[in-house]
Write a protein that binds this DNA or RNA. Structure first.
Lengths: 208, 208, 208, 208
DNA sequence: GGCTAACCGAGACGGTACGTCGGGTCTTATG
DNA sequence: CATAAGACCCGACGTACCGTCTCGGTTAGCC
C-alpha cells in the first residue's frame, strides 16, 4: 500500500545494517524488531511499513549483502577440485559463527513462514545452487558426469549432507567431511569406469 | 531439585498429550507454554518444574510417542529395496502435515538452543540413523557396499538430500525423488561392477 | 510564518466542517487530526500550518458555527421570564447530544491547554455570558435587581449550577431544574420585597 | 475476572502513590500508564488487570487519599460562617496547583468516559456535597433556611459558580468571590425578613 | 494414622516485545 | 509558495507470553 517511490533509502540501508550487526553480535532471541529500529535510529513503523516481519528484514539484509558477490564457481577444468572448493567454502561459512548465526536465524523464520521460505529459496538459495549446477553442467558437457544424471539431484547430493550435519549436528563439519562427500558424489555421478581415483583426494586425473 | 519420585504421571502425560495436540492443530506460533498448560489442565509451574522450556517438552512428547516404535529396517537381503523403503517412509513423514509440523517445531527450538539440539540428536535422531546404518553394515558385510565406505557418511548421503529438500523447499519431495537419491547413493557406495537391481539406474549393468 | 493572504479558504472550511461532522458522529477519542485531515481531503500539514492543535480547530469550528447567531436575549420587560428562557435554552443545548459532545470535547482540550482556555473564554463564552449580563443590567436599571448586586456574580449564580450539573452529573438537567435555579437566583438578586412573578417561588409574597 | 483475594496490596498502593506523584510533578499529558507502571515498579499488566484505564487509577488514587479525611463541616451554629469556610476551602483547593492538576486530570477522563463519570460522582463528589447538604439541613432545622428550599439545589447554587469560574476561567477565584457567592446564596435560601446583613460580610447574626 | 514436605492447580506478578495508532515534522510533486 | 499526500521518528497504547512467585489444597512417605 505505501508508495515505494517515496521510500527513504537511508532508512532502508540503516535497517538492513542494523539487522546484520545485531545478528552478528547477539543471540537470535535478542534480535527484536524493536532492537533493529533502535539501532537503525528508525521508527518501528518504518520497518513494519516495508517488511512483513523480522524474517523478511533478515532475508533482505542477506540478499543485500550478497548482491555484489560473484557466485560463479571457478572452472579449472577439473570438476573434482572445483567442487571440493565450493564444498569447503560452504563448510567455512557454516563454521563462521557470524554467518552461521545468520543462517540459523533465517532458517528459524523460514520454518515458521511458508511465504518467507519461498522467498529465501528463490532469492538467496537458488542463485547459489544454480551456480553449482552450472558448473556441473559444464562438467557434464565435458563428459565428466554421466549424461543421464539429474543435475538438480546431484547438487542436493552434495549439499544435502552438509546441511544435514549442520542442522542436526550429527558430526563435525570439516573439510575432510566435505571432501569425503565430494568423493562419494563424484562416484555416484561420474563416468562409471571413470576418471576417479578411488578413495583418494587426487588432483591429477588423466584421461587414458 | 524436584523429586522425580513424587512426580505426578497424570500431569506428565497430559502435558505431552497437549503438546502433541497443539502441534497438530495450530501454527507453531500458537504453541506456547501457557497454551500447553491450559490444554493439559495443569499449572505452568508444573511444566517449568520438569522441563527447561518449550523445546524440551516437544522433544519429550516426540520421544514418548516414538518410544514403542520398531526402528529396525527390514532386511530382505536386497539392500536397494530396503533403502528405498526407508527413504519413501521418510518422505511420507515429511509429507504428513502433522508430523512435518512437529519436526518443524522441534527444528526451530533446536536451532535456538544448543543443549536441546544435542538431546534431539541423541534421543530422537541417532536411533533412527543408527538403524539405517545397521542395515548398511549388514549390506557391507554381504559385499553389497564397498569396504572402504564410511557408513556414517553414507547415511547422510541418503538423508541429507531429503532434509535439504524439506528444509529449503528446493523441489517436490516425492517417492520418485527418494528413489533417485537411493540410486545415486548406491552407485556411490556400491561395488563398482555393481550388484545393481534391474529396475534401477538406467545405466546398463551386465552381470558377467 | 505562513502568509494568511495566500490561505486556501476552501481547505479552511473543509477542515472546520470535517471537525464538526466528526464531533457529531464519533466519540471524542476518534477525533484525531488525522481523521479531520482525511475527512476534509486535506494534508495534515495544512492543519498544523494554521492551527496549534486539535483544540484550536474545534474552537474555530464552533466560533465559525456560532458566528451568525444572535446572542441578544429577548427583553419582554419581565426579567424572570426572560431568564427562564435563556436557562431553558442552555439546558436544551446540554441535552442535545451533538452540542453536548462538542462542548465536552472543547472542555477537555481547554483543561489541558491554558492558552486555549483563554481563547475559548474570550471568543466563545464571554459573548454569551455578556449577553445575559446585558439583560441583567437592563433589569437592574428597571429596578428589578438590587443596585448593589455584582452582575458578573449574578450571571455565574445562574449558569454555575447548570454547568455543575452537566459536568458532574449530580442530577437530571431539566427545565424544572433551570426554573428552580432562576427562582433562587432572583430571590438572591431581586428587590427584597420583590417583584416576583406569581408562578414563581412557593413562598407567599404580598405586595403591600 | 481476576481474583481480588489474590491481589497484591503492595503493588496496589505503589500504583496509587505513583499516580499521585506523577500528577503532582508532571503535566497531565505525561501521565501515561507506562509512566505510572515504571514509577511504581510494576508491570503494565498489573494496572490493566485491576483498572479500566488511566482515569480509573486516578479516581482510586484520589478516593484512597481522601479515605481518612473528615468531610463533616463544622457546625458553629452560624450557617453563614460555616458555609464561608467550606467555600473558601474549596477555593483553596482550586488554587493549590497540585490538587487542581488532579481535579483537572480527573475531569478530563470523566468527560470522555460516562462510566467513570458516575463513579467519580458517587465515590468522590457525592460525599463532599452531602456533607455540605447535611450542614444545610441542620441550618434548615434551625430555621435559618426556608423550609421550602430544595437543599440539593442550594448546594449547587453554592458550588456551581465556583466550578464555573474554575472551569471556564471567567475571573479570579478568590476568597472574596466565594464570600460574595455565599452572600447571594444565603439571600436566596435564607428566611425572607431574615437574619441577613444585606451587602455585608457580617459575622455576628442575632436572632431577634 | 498423623505429620510434614513436596507437588499440584491456579493465576498474579515484574518484565519485554509485540504490532498499531496518532502526534507533529519533513519531503515530494502538483497547481 | 500553499497544497495533498503521506513517509518519517517517536512514544504510548493495550495484549500476549515469558519465567518466577505465592496461595490453598491435595498427596505421599516416613514416623
Amino acid at each position: 500500500m505505501p508508495d515505494p517511490a517515496r521510500r527513504n533509502d537511508r532508512s532502508r540501508l540503516a535497517i538492513l545494517d542494523a539487522a546484520r550487526q545485531l545478528l552478528a553480535e547477539t543471540r537470535y532471541a535478542d534480535l527484536t524488531i524493536e532492537a533493529i529500529a533502535a539501532r537503525a535510529g528508525v521508527g518501528k513503523q518504518t520497518i513494519y511499513r516495508w517488511w512483513r516481519g523480522k524474517g523478511a528484514v533478515i532475508l533482505d539484509a542477506l540478499v543485500d549483502a550478497a548482491a555484489n558477490a560473484d557466485l560463479a564457481l571457478p572452472d579449472t577444468g577439473d570438476l573434482h577440485t572445483d567442487l571440493r572448493a565450493v564444498m569447503r567454502a560452504t563448510v567455512a561459512e557454516f563454521a563462521d559463527p557470524r554467518l552461521s548465526a545468520t543462517t540459523r536465524a533465517l532458517t528459524i523464520e523460514t520454518l515458521a513462514d511458508d511465504d518467507l521460505a519461498g522467498q529465501v529459496r528463490d532469492r538467496l538459495l537458488r542463485p547459489q545452487l544454480d551456480a553449482v549446477q552450472d558448473r556441473l553442467r559444464s562438467g557434464q558437457a565435458a563428459g565428466q558426469i554421466r549424461a543421464d544424471v539429474d543435475l538438480g539431484q546431484a547438487v542436493e547430493l552434495l549439499f544435502g549432507p552438509l546441511y544435514h550435519r549442520w542442522l542436526l549436528r550429527t558430526g563435525p563439519l570439516t573439510d575432510a567431511y566435505a571432501d569425503g562427500i565430494v568423493e562419494l558424489a563424484m562416484t555416484a555421478i561420474g563416468q562409471p569406469g571413470g576418471t576417479e581415483t578411488p578413495g583418494g583426494s587426487s588432483i591429477v586425473k588423466t584421461v587414458p
